[in-house]
């Protein structure tokens, strides 16, 4: 793994912040990705903007990886079942808790929402506990 680079980390974060600001300023929408996906799968005409956002998201990732990345992003192996179960928990948890890292973290904290602060602290703690349990409790190098 390449070493920690605070400039690209903070710079990338600012880009994400600009992205969220533009969407709110022009379309009045919160750039919460789990919420955008959730609304997109209703396939109604008024929600088409969600698909444009998701297409942009994928294009942005590709543009970085093939256009700007100094070295390819490291690949690692995934257990497909873990991805599906993890994904299910993400989908379920974000709908129940009304948001994810982008909705509660980037946008909610930006709006100084107390609900979002509670959500961010909660999911960071459970995520850290899960990683600790899997890596150090069970000793699995995943």
């Amino acid at each position: 793994m390449a070493s920690f680079n605070w400039v690209t980390a903070f710079g990338g974060g600012i880009l994400i912040g600009i992205s969220a600001t533009l969407l709110l300023a022009f379309n009045g929408r919160i750039a919460g990705i789990s919420g955008i996906v959730n609304g997109a799968i209703t396939f109604t005409k008024t929600e088409v903007w969600r698909w444009w956002f998701l297409i942009g998201l994928l294009l942005g990732g590709m543009l970085y990886e093939y256009g700007f990345a100094l070295q390819p992003t490291p690949r690692s192996t995934f257990a497909p079942v873990a991805m599906v179960i993890g994904g299910f928990l993400v989908g379920f948890g974000t709908r129940m808790g009304s948001g994810c890292t982008s909705g509660h973290g980037v946008c909610g904290l930006g709006r100084l929402s107390l609900r979002s602060l509670v959500a961010v602290i909660t999911f960071m703690i459970t995520a850290m506990l899960t990683v600790w349990m899997v890596r150090h409790g069970l000793g699995l190098n995943l």
Binding site: I18, S19, W52, F53, L57, L59, G60, G61, T73
Partner: peptide
């Protein structure tokens, strides 16, 4: 916005 978000994540 999505494009910038993806670039930022990358």
């Amino acid at each position: 916005s999505g494009l910038l978000f993806g670039l930022g994540l990358g």
